[in-house]
Design a protein around this nucleic acid. Structure first.
Lengths: 348, 348
DNA sequence: CGCTGGCACTCGGGGTTCCCGAGTGCCAGC
DNA sequence: GCTGGCACTCGGGAACCCCGAGTGCCAGCG
């Protein structure tokens, strides 16, 4: 229907205009800037309908219209195609991320890059342990009753845990229980997905030499616990200074809860938890469960497919900004960066 | 002299009052709240002198007085004694930090604790590598030409680096160059302060078997580089949400550069670089070199004496807040927390 | 039937004005 | 050297006004 088409165009124009100017947009300005082929009066009629349907709203009786969360949602869902990044942006990504050495470095750079590209807050999650595979396990004795267990995954993530161990009393003379343990653990776990660790642990407990049982049990317990605890998924945040762009306009009085939520990593991690590498997820304003985010939008995507057909990401990354953000641009940036990061991690 | 004494008292009262109320304080209010034994008129005279000497200033002709940076400085320098923490605070510290497992955990908790205690931004530096000793070096082969080098220090810090290595061509049959390298490295470095690594490296290059020379050289280079680069000193920041307390009052328009400076860790690290565990360092407003901090004060101290007589800290921790902050309370909290952290790290 | 130009109406924001009260500096007296 | 008194200053809030952007509605036109 012609009506509907034009109304959609009008909505789109309102969103674009509002995003770029941050001023409520009126019928006249719209007609002038976006030649829609109709007069302001007609646009006014369309706007009245759009308002009635809840896509836009008037901040004050005599101001222009502003998109509602629902309006942004509609806009995002109807994005015909994600606009590709400019060549300059692509180059920036490469320049920024190439030369990163270890995992920390990659993630730190990524978060900075993303914050800079989108001029918003960027977040990135460390590769989930449970979806990584073991590359190496190292055991260092700290004291007679304490070991340091260092886990190195195939994504380059290094985790350490202190393990309290029972005293080893019945070790055969001339053997080094810790060295034995190391060999044993590596033989059992290297190459295995951490999600499968539970099974391997059971095996190990059966097959380990008697005098090592105690050690193995203690270490295994810690290992499993480490994986189970979702809090262990760490998060990197960058570009918080961007929250202050546009003065207090973008986040009217809500800056504080937002900063708190960002530090309270769990909140963000929950958002990231369900993200797949294939589709960019957009969560707008009130759609966000957590109160700190109700004035903000989150654009996120998974990176580094864990491989195969299963569409599980190693971790998520994304951008947090005002509802009034450049969705197409942000979505494109987030996606491009995620791809690049996935690639980098796969290489190492 | 009686005059001077009272003037100091007046200054102190002004600081205290302003810190707690955030309103410029007038002679009348001062006389009412702090019984100084003299009339407002007399206080006015003292205030005039204090203003002339640059300790206080009038934001507007007809408002009360506000301490200047110099005023705060004087106040801090003349603090007779640091007020001890309340029992509740001591308990909070213990409750918060006990049960921390690894280094990351200790530092994360510390930063949260400190932010919460002082209601400001807290920062903590990872234990400086160069002042730590090697506990273990682990070498994992990633590819034929790449190694992952994992360094575990006695403070529990774990650092990883990828090292590009030359192909090993002349290894005697039946030997494992990587295993040999590991043994060699550990024999040479374990227990050594990282600051002394340079010397050890030279030794190692001489004594290593010929076929390992290439490996040793590559690894050593990375090791030394890691230590030399001050940027490798990582930093943890927490409680940024506290910056928004008091609306835009505390940091008039300077919130943004402050957030930027906090993310640009180098700036803060420089501040922390010179900190000793014995004395709490206070840097007020304009005293801070970096522009982002000119509206803020930094209270910092070193933690974990590197031992012996040398008064070198393993790292620094501190608090960043408005110049208008509770200096005695913050200094006490910072010092207490630093002690506790030092203790914790020494134990492990 | 839908678009258009015209028109009366609304109301937020910015500019101006005004006034109050807190706070000061100074002075004469104790 | 402290004190009470007094005239003076000036920032900030309240009240006010006005302009202009923007709207809704209506009658006419293709």
């Amino acid at each position: 229907m012609a009506h509907e088409d034009r109304r959609l165009q009008v909505l789109r124009a309102i969103v674009q205009d509002y995003v770029s100017t941050n001023d409520p947009v009126g019928s006249k300005a719209l007609a002038a800037r976006y030649d829609l082929g109709v007069s302001p009066a007609t646009i006014r009629n369309d706007m009245a309908v759009l308002e009635e349907e809840g896509y836009i709203t008037q901040p004050h009786t005599s101001a222009g219209r502003v998109p509602t969360d629902k309006g942004y949602r509609f806009f995002v869902d109807r994005l015909s195609q994600v606009k590709p990044l400019s060549a300059a942006e692509r180059r920036a990504i490469e320049r920024f991320l190439d030369g990163a050495l270890d995992l920390d470095d990659v993630l730190t750079r990524t978060v900075r890059l993303l914050a800079q590209l989108t001029r918003n807050v960027a977040v990135i999650q460390y590769p989930t342990l449970s979806r990584s595979a073991v590359r190496h396990l190292e055991v260092v004795q700290l004291a007679t009753n304490r070991l340091l267990l260092v886990l190195i995954t195939d994504t380059g993530r290094v985790e350490q845990r202190v393990v309290e161990i029972p005293a080893v009393t019945d070790a055969p003379a001339g053997t080094d229980p810790v060295a034995e343990l190391r060999t044993l653990l590596n033989a059992a776990f290297v190459g295995a997905k951490l999600a499968e660790a539970g099974v391997k642990v059971a095996d190990l407990l059966d097959t380990a030499p008697a005098h090592l049982r105690g050690l193995v049990a203690a270490v295994s317990a810690t290992l499993i616990e480490t994986l189970a605890e979702p809090g262990e998924d760490r998060l990197l945040v960058g570009g918080t200074a961007n929250l202050t762009r546009g003065g207090a306009l973008d986040f009217p009085g809500t800056l504080r809860p937002l900063l708190e939520a960002l530090e309270e990593q769990v909140v963000v991690l929950r958002l990231m938890g369900e993200v797949a590498p294939s589709t960019v997820l957009v969560s707008i304003g009130e759609e966000n469960a957590h109160e700190g985010f109700t004035g903000a939008s989150v654009v996120s995507v998974g990176y580094g497919s864990a491989g195969g057909t299963a569409d599980l990401a190693l971790g998520g990354l994304g951008v947090v900004g005002p509802t009034r953000m450049d969705y197409p641009g942000t979505m494109a940036a987030v996606r491009a960066v995620a791809r690049y990061v996935g690639q980098l991690l796969a290489e190492s």
